[in-house]
């Protein structure tokens, strides 16, 4: 009775009302962001007195927003490449290795996930100040790579565990070296895992803000750091524009992921 929608009786109305309220709670801020980005009043009046595209024009013509966008892309790309490479090597060790403590190693690669970001942020800040690389591009990449690597390791070990190890052995019997077999036979077989690892690594870096605050300098800021700086000053419509674009990008990415899942399920 409780797991059958038609037979819930009076509980069905209660359930629908609460679920509806929760959905509204989750959706309303996102809709508001988009509405505010077209709001003609600079004071974020709602409902808007009129509609305008001037905030979009303002953001697109602002070199600072563009610079932070490009920094985010650059940091994210470097992190993605390094994270997939290191994750792939670690994945081979964890799934194909024959040494003691493999499970401990797997657990160790996940530890950055559970460390509160603020602790990692100031720990790296302290180390980078000492090494004189605070506020540098390399610092950014190192910090975000620490956070992205666990996701890459999880995605790639998962994919490797699902591929038959005998594929690798067969290729080697046919004369391929160990790494030739892994590159030419195993890599194509785990391409979905590699794609997942790359996507999660990029998004981890792209969205990260807490550690990034301590890595940034006035001249080197990722998009979230720039947004946070603006938010601390005032609630300008610029942020509504950037936020709406991010909501749009998220929705597109979700659509892409759904399509991708359908493809790989076939």
């Amino acid at each position: 009775m409780l797991m059958d929608f038609a037979r819930l009786g009076w509980m069905r109305w209660l359930l629908c009302a609460t679920a509806g309220a929760c959905t509204l709670f989750l959706l309303a801020p996102l809709v508001l962001l988009i509405a505010l980005s077209f709001d003609s009043s600079p004071w974020l009046q709602f409902p808007p007195p009129g509609w305008t595209l001037q905030w979009y024009a303002q953001v697109f013509h602002d070199p600072d927003w563009l610079a932070s966008f490009i920094t985010s892309l650059e940091v994210g790309s470097c992190v993605t490449v390094l994270s997939v490479l290191l994750g792939l090597l670690c994945g081979f060790a964890i799934t194909r290795g024959q040494f003691r403590g493999r499970e401990i190693l797997r657990g160790f690669f996940l530890t950055p996930m559970i460390l509160p970001s603020i602790v990692l942020g100031i720990a790296l800040y302290s180390a980078f100040l000492w090494l004189h690389i605070a506020g540098s591009f390399a610092g950014f990449v190192i910090a975000h790579l620490v956070l992205a690597l666990p996701f890459s390791v999880v995605a790639i070990t998962g994919a490797l565990e699902q591929t038959d190890k005998s594929l690798e052995d067969a290729a080697m019997l046919c004369g391929a070296g160990l790494w030739e077999a892994r590159v030419r036979v195993i890599l194509p077989a785990i391409r979905h895992g590699l794609f997942g690892a790359a996507l999660f690594s990029f998004l981890t870096s792209w969205d990260e803000v807490v550690v990034a605050i301590f890595m940034a300098s006035p001249t080197l800021q990722t998009l979230p750091v720039r947004m946070l700086g603006e938010l601390r000053q005032d609630l300008s419509p610029d942020i509504a524009v950037v936020s709406s674009l991010l909501v749009l990008a998220t929705a597109l990415l979700m659509g892409l992921a759904a399509l991708f899942q359908k493809e790989s399920a076939r």
Binding site: L86, C90, P112, V119, L124, L149
Partner: peptide
């Protein structure tokens, strides 16, 4: 112990030890 497939984990392990464990312990 060098031929049991541990070697590929070395770069990642070294990276996390140097750039994650060490700074946190130093803090």
């Amino acid at each position: 112990r060098l031929r049991n497939g541990f070697a590929p984990a070395v770069p990642g392990l070294a990276f996390l030890l140097l750039c994650f464990m060490l700074p946190v312990l130093a803090l």
